[in-house]
């Protein structure tokens, strides 16, 4: 019995690889886009316009205060009602990118706020433009604060990507559901699914830990 289950599981490995691939590709695209968007939003959140800042703040609160599953359903099932038809992959990327951007926005904004105002004044006094102040003075210092929680957030988002299985994307979690129908051993199957996520996330956990240690360094650029 057990042996048969192993043989059957071994036969499912192409499906498992596909699922792992889907999880990695979806996460990678969403995290890259979400990081870019999140930095943009974080910079605007701390920029001059109070209106823009509160609009972004309200959106971030809304997204952080609702379940990701509900968000993804809204995008995948409700948007078509308004004539916006999306395939499951695009819907998944949009939902995860949005989620990532909102969390990263707050991390980046907190990092920017941690830079002493004297730094901005010094940059201002020497005639640097708004973008030069951000690029040359504020962001490099904010990165020391931003990087460890940012990488930690990546881990959370990769795990959150499992929710896309609910709209039919064949990611690692959905592969688990499919395989368990053939191999009736949920403990074993989902143990292996967990191992799959862990293999992707563990290097990032290590990286986050290393970055946190490096933050203690008193000077110099932050290097990965």
């Amino acid at each position: 019995m057990m042996w048969q289950q192993f043989v059957s599981l071994a036969g499912s490995y192409p499906l498992a690889l596909r699922g792992l691939g889907m999880t990695v590709v979806l996460s990678l695209i969403s995290l890259v886009l979400g990081t870019l968007l999140g930095f943009g939003l974080g910079i605007l959140r701390t920029g001059g316009s109070r209106l823009l800042s509160s609009v972004i703040g309200a959106w971030v609160d809304l997204i952080r205060g609702t379940p990701f599953l509900v968000q993804i359903f809204l995008i995948f099932f409700i948007l078509p009602e308004f004539g916006i038809e999306l395939d499951a992959f695009t819907a998944g990327v949009i939902a995860l990118t949005n989620l990532a951007a909102c969390f990263i926005c707050e991390i980046v904004a907190a990092g920017i706020r941690s830079v002493p105002s004297g730094q901005v004044e010094a940059a201002l006094a020497s005639g640097l433009s708004r973008w030069q102040r951000m690029r040359q003075v504020v962001l490099p210092q904010a990165m020391r604060i931003v990087l460890p929680p940012l990488v930690g957030q990546y881990v959370l988002l990769i795990k959150d990507s499992s929710v896309v299985s609910a709209i039919g994307l064949t990611d690692l979690t959905r592969v688990g559901w499919l395989v368990v129908q053939r191999v009736p051993n949920g403990l074993l199957v989902f143990f292996l699914v967990g191992v799959g996520y862990f293999i992707v996330c563990y290097p990032l956990i290590m990286l986050a830990r290393r970055l946190e240690r490096r933050m203690g360094a008193a000077h110099g650029e932050v290097q990965l």
């Binding site: 010094a122 940059a123 020497s126 005639g127 003075v137 210092q141 932050v222």
Partner: peptide
């Protein structure tokens, strides 16, 4: 501002 140098009490050098 490019014509005006400003020296602060707390230096405000860029630490990085």
């Amino acid at each position: 501002r490019t014509e005006i140098g400003f020296v602060f009490q707390s230096f405000n050098l860029y630490p990085h």
